[in-house]
Design a protein around this nucleic acid. Structure first.
Length: 471
RNA sequence: GGCCCCUUAGUCUAGCGGUUAGGACGUCGCCCUCUCACGGCGAAGACAUGGGUUCGAUUCCCGUAGGGGUCACCA
């Protein structure tokens, strides 16, 4: 196989969408798999909606996921510039060439005139097609005009999509398409093709909302006289109600998943598995993804975004981290929650306990709150556990801890076991009241670990406070 | 509505003419257990539908239904 040159070409009209991230990812994986080139191009010809902030957000998202680009903003490359608005002369030149060759023409029909025709077509319930009014009109550059490509009336264009198979579009469903706007801006189909040609892209992988653009683009490649690249159209990501994923389904901004405590690798893992598979394997490292990625295994059906599965994947990734990495990764999330956790031994002990219990950094923070802040006593837990019956157990544990110099796990285990044995009750009778006094609730890591992490003085203080609450 | 695409459990999928239709998330049950998790074991749960082709269809073809996409001087 010749080295692939693929690209991701987002419009900077907002943050990096989770679907866009997936498209970028598939392109990136394919490039890395085959030692190809991954190009990042910014399609900013919609000046109304494009912003510099959005460009920055997209680059940030790409970097967070670890999708490095070989050519594009920041890194340059031999086919730049990589912003479409900096390439207007290229489009103009190509359009002029098409006009000179009689393959395109200037059209002076106004939007208003066309709207009238569109309405009429709608009233007659027929598909509107530009009637070709200006096809044979003389080219007068002085008059405001758009440039249209001459599209054949008969026949059809088809191509073999790498994921969807052969797709055929009859030409009578197409029309003389506008390729250059009145203000000189290229339209999407033209800009994308000219750029893909000049950037030597040989495989175009994008969302399947572009399937219907492909025949139009192939016609442009042919008019321009360039080879047509391969195409791969990725199925959309849908929400739980099977409609296109949007804000009402939850976060669609890639970066909000960082805020929610997800690991970029986990998100990548989930996103790839949504529509791609490698046997029964669920968890992949980046390296494994690169090794196994293949368009053949990309499914043709849209996938529903499943937050539960994402969380599960994230958990698998989280628990695979070392104590050090887990602690270091968690620090910013504690800070965001206003908790004074430092990247120290205490945190490492905490995350060691929480890695099996929390599925995201945010959950780690939630479950570790009482290690860094006063307990928030759950009322039901208090009523059930901080009772007269529990008083002697709390007192015995308190006295036992008070008599210990260091919080050794083995010693703590012995203490709890002895208190329970002496009273002839199960360990739970002792551990639960202590747990409520120490954590405020009934769910936590093992009680010995909790005591050890809290340390002697804090444990005593909380036990005393708990004892004081017993009526 | 026209055109294009899609259709295995609630969800992601394996399957590539002959399988007790496999795995994963989620759900439920049991075990482990100081709670919560983790882990282990187990359960329920799918080939949209009607015709073909074939000795035999989840698998190939056609229709129907359902879903998605797209019909701009947006991308």
């Amino acid at each position: 196989m010749i080295a692939p040159r693929v690209r991701f070409a987002p419009s900077p009209t907002g943050y990096l969408h989770i679907g866009g991230a997936r498209t970028a990812l598939f392109n990136w994986l394919f490039a890395r798999r085959h030692g190809g080139t991954f190009v990042l191009r910014i399609e900013d010809t919609d000046r109304e909606r494009s912003t510099q902030a959005a460009v920055a957000a997209i680059l940030e998202g790409m970097r967070w996921l670890g999708l490095d680009w070989d050519e594009g903003p920041g890194v340059g490359g031999p086919h730049g510039p990589y912003f479409q608005t900096e390439r207007l002369d290229v489009y103009r030149a190509q359009a002029d060439r098409l006009i000179a060759q009689g393959k395109a023409y200037a059209c002076t029909c106004t939007r208003e005139e066309l709207d009238v025709l569109r309405k009429q077509a709608e009233a007659r319930k027929v598909q509107f097609r530009y009637p070709g009014t200006c096809r044979n009109r003389a080219y007068d550059p002085a008059q405001r005009h758009v440039i249209r490509l001459i599209v054949p009336e008969a026949g059809a264009t088809s191509f073999d999509d790498l994921v969807k198979g052969t797709i055929t579009t009859p030409h009578d469903t197409l029309q003389d398409e506008v390729i250059l706007r009145g203000d000189g801006m290229p339209l999407y189909n033209f800009g994308a093709v000219v750029d893909d040609v000049t950037m030597e892209i040989n495989l175009v992988a994008r969302g399947d909302d572009h399937v219907n653009n492909t025949a139009r683009q192939i016609l442009i490649y042919q008019a321009l006289g360039y080879p047509v690249p391969a195409f791969a159209h990725l199925p959309m990501i849908l929400g739980a109600d099977k409609t296109r994923l949007s804000k009402r389904h939850g976060a669609t901004n890639l970066m909000s998943y960082r805020e929610m405590g997800f690991l970029p690798g986990a998100l990548v893992n989930y996103l790839v598995r949504l529509g791609w598979s490698h046997g029964d394997q669920e968890i992949f490292t980046m390296q494994e993804l690169i090794e196994h990625f293949d368009w053949k295994q990309v499914g043709a059906t849209a996938g529903i975004f499943n937050p539960d599965k994402l969380l599960w994947v994230n958990h698998q990734w989280l628990r695979a981290l070392s104590d050090d990495d887990l602690a270091r990764g968690a620090v910013p999330y504690f800070a965001a929650a206003g908790l004074p956790a430092a990247d120290d031994q205490k945190l490492r002990l905490i995350v060691r306990q929480l890695r099996e219990r929390a599925k995201s950094f945010v959950e780690i923070v939630q479950q570790a709150r009482y290690f860094y802040a006063p307990i928030q006593l759950d009322e039901k837990a208090r009523q059930k556990q901080l009772t007269a019956e529990a008083r002697p157990f709390l007192q015995a544990v308190r006295d036992g801890v008070a008599g210990m110099d260091t919080m050794e796990l083995a010693a703590l285990e012995r203490l709890f076991a002895e208190v329970a044995a002496r009273a002839g009750v199960g360990l739970g009778k002792v551990a639960q009241p202590v747990r409520v006094a120490l954590t405020g609730g009934t769910a936590s890591p093992g009680i010995h670990d909790v005591v050890q992490i809290l340390g002697k003085s804090e444990t005593l203080a909380r036990l005393d406070a708990g004892l004081a609450l017993i009526p």
